[in-house]
Design a protein around this nucleic acid. Structure first.
Lengths: 211, 211
DNA sequence: CCATGTGAAGAGGTTCACAGCG
DNA sequence: CGCTGTGAACCTCTTCACATGG
């Protein structure tokens, strides 16, 4: 239980968490690594290893207590608090995200939205009023924002990213289909939907794939 | 140049492809692995290794010809053709995807959309008429569809996935925040937006992260 | 006896380093 | 001389296997 955590482990923890929430809702109070591994499509040793990187949550001979393990994972992932999220770009994708209930459900609140299209500025997305992207620095210096979602066209993404990083943002979810070059202190996750379809098309064409 | 291709390589090829398209547009006709690695944030040996898994595309002492390399990667990824894509679920996310230009730009055409909401059935998303999800099997048996995008709620995803797999679909892009359990002959890519935010929140809380 | 937690072994992917060739 | 292509070394993550404890 030490220092370097594989990214893959973090992503699996999210999946375990979601599954445990579901199982807890069904009244299950104990689960073995074998069972959890089966429903998530990983080996039981993978489950145990992932969890053991953060502590000992189970009981030998029995398994893991569902509600408690869920709480522990929530704590590990930082899901026991609210996160203030900003959005840049309210095109089709950005607008859909403002209405995406899973974010809010997990404590990620989109608290502000920006765009550079004069016709959109001032319009609303639910409760949110779209602001001028020119005002983004002023806003970020006054209001606390934990992470930013970029849903802007590819040719604007790098510029916008640098701007928000300059305002102290250290976590970015990037929907633009381009790789951002940012200092290593900034965490970036890409949500590149075309790349995922391309991975599928590759798989269909080359049935010798992957891992 | 042989058999097993790492998934990570495939995903990087997509990024190289996009970058090469951009550089070609700027009139660049040759690029070294060093330069391409720099702009994509990977090592030059990584670039060379990735490409060498599929052939020899470069010239020693010079680098890679941009337009030709782009064409070669397009061929490898299956981007030199059109793909017929179906969509299930035209809520916020699904609707945004019907209007997402990057898909079409890369040859992924959403040719049909389904939903189970009577108020949505018959309505239009651009040119697309939303069909009743009850008719999905009938449709898939008549029309050729290469891959399906699932943008349905988590509690319906598994059922819908099994249904389309039963109709012969072998590639699924899953936006539902739940792990699908499907036969290994089916390629699934998850686009789990909450998980990505959770990876960011973990990173912010534990500045010792990843890899 | 059952299932966890973990050191050791095994796979898989990345980086190194250099031979080879334009 | 410069840069590719590639086997070998390295490193990271996964799986194995078993000691441990309820």
């Amino acid at each position: 239980m030490g220092s370097k955590i594989p990214l893959a482990t973090v992503l699996r923890l999210s999946r375990y968490y979601r599954r445990l929430a579901h199982l807890e809702g069904q009244g299950m109070n104990t689960i073995s690594s074998k069972k959890l591994g089966e429903v998530e499509g990983v080996t039981s040793s993978q489950v145990r290893k992932d969890l053991s990187l953060f502590g000992s949550f189970g009981t030998k001979g029995l398994g893991y207590p569902v509600p408690e393990l869920k709480r522990n994972i929530a704590y590990i992932l930082g899901l026991d608090r609210k996160w203030r999220v900003g959005l840049v770009g309210v095109g089709n994708v950005g607008s859909a995200l403002t209405a995406y209930k899973e974010f809010h459900k997990q404590g990620f609140d989109i608290v502000v939205a920006f765009d550079n299209d004069k016709r959109k500025i001032g319009s609303k997305r639910g409760e949110l009023v779209v602001r001028d992207v020119e005002d983004i620095e002023e806003y970020l210096k006054q209001e606390k924002v934990d992470m930013m979602i970029l849903a802007v066209p590819a040719d604007q993404a790098q510029k916008v990213a640098e701007k928000v990083v300059g305002c102290g943002i250290r976590a970015i979810l990037n929907f633009a289909p381009i790789s951002l070059r940012l200092p290593p202190c900034v965490f970036v996750r890409d949500e590149n939907m075309v790349i995922e379809l391309e991975a599928l098309s590759f798989s269909l064409m080359n049935r010798r794939l992957i891992e």
